[in-house]
Nucleic acid binder design. Sequence first.
DNA 1: GAGTGGTCTAGACCACTGT
DNA 2: CAGTGGTCTAGACCACTCC
Lengths: 233, 233
Amino acid sequence: MSKPQISRWQAIHDEVLRRIHAREWQPGQVIPNEVDLAAEFGCARATVNRALRVLAEAGLLERRRKAGTRVALHPVSRATVDIPVIRQEIEERGLAYGYALIENTKDCPPAQVRAALGTRNCQHITALHRAEGAPYVFEDRWISLDTLSDAACADFTTFSANEWLLAHAPYTHGDIRFAAHAAGPEAQMLGTEPGAPVFVIDRTTWDHAQAITSVRLFYAPGYSIHTTIGAGA
Amino acid sequence: MSKPQISRWQAIHDEVLRRIHAREWQPGQVIPNEVDLAAEFGCARATVNRALRVLAEAGLLERRRKAGTRVALHPVSRATVDIPVIRQEIEERGLAYGYALIENTKDCPPAQVRAALGTRNCQHITALHRAEGAPYVFEDRWISLDTLSDAACADFTTFSANEWLLAHAPYTHGDIRFAAHAAGPEAQMLGTEPGAPVFVIDRTTWDHAQAITSVRLFYAPGYSIHTTIGAGA
DNA sequence: GAGTGGTCTAGACCACTGT
DNA sequence: CAGTGGTCTAGACCACTCC
């Protein structure tokens, strides 16, 4: 037998959620303040605070000092997407991981990447990741040599730039874009035809103000990103 | 002048993050327990707990009772994606929102949707959302009439099913998938050619154990989802 | 069994912001 | 200015899990 072990703040979280769903507290309406709710639930204010903070982070409540807490008018669905290391993503599905470096040169990136990285001084790496022998994702990466001069002499033949960067260049923040593109020259490597729809992820990461790398991942046909969303209204 | 106003727990959060990035605490290594860290930082244990909890939620730390807190071996990038109501998404870009119902019939869904919703008794709604007159997204939605019998007599001509559901059927959890497809018959409505790459979002939502709706959104060419990621290693 | 994190309390001070 | 949420404290008990 397994007991869920609901904590006090989770119970309050659930009860507040129930009142929002039941329209006892309507969208846009101000709900009682923390002191009153703590009195109602017979607990400390900090416990109510925790419950409401989680709901606010989920986008269901809007909180402002003095103005109080309101039920959000336009609750957005907030999904958290995990973007793992490619090798890990493949191996976690129980498939054999394969990697092949295609190109590794010092080069000047195209305008769009140049704008993202803020430099012309880049290492250009292209590689193919395979799952169980089949093409999985084609990686087209630019690394700023202004930020990471080591990248010029790194060996990407056995380990991908993906993993090298994880070990050598932590980032503070990044920027991700998901889109659908028509396959270009990389179609052949992905085992599809030019013009076929491919799922593309563009990602640029920074270490504070220093841009580190900008990468475009072309996924083989059939790829999709899956995630779940919590409570919404 | 604006002061960032860094709170105590955020300062500790940042310092721990610095130590992880600086490899002072290496991946897989157990870091000092909360009591020791509280002593080091000269604060209450709850404050350290808050800082470490946030880092754990971000995937950078792994915490287990008795075993202690370790630096994650495979820090995944965890991005939060906001999926707003379509009308809101368009209007927030300062564009005129347009909506046209195409079809609204009681019908039996295809096998895949049937499996997701667990019923044959469905309302089928298709509609086109426009931004500034141009096609923006084509919506292909199935609503379970077992769960929401009201949907059979709802009027979707002026307000989209998207908004009707928000007001009538809160969900407790959902399931989202992003993918790239080749445009089918909907290509014409999206102003593109069959076979062209389109960004597709599949979403199914439940209210507890009851499936509510399953929708497939076909976005017009050029659409992309943008988000940011926080600190990673 | 014992060490660690998870939670909770009662109270306090502070930051922000609407009035 | 005053009301509200944001944070912090010192201490406590409990749940979990490794040894």
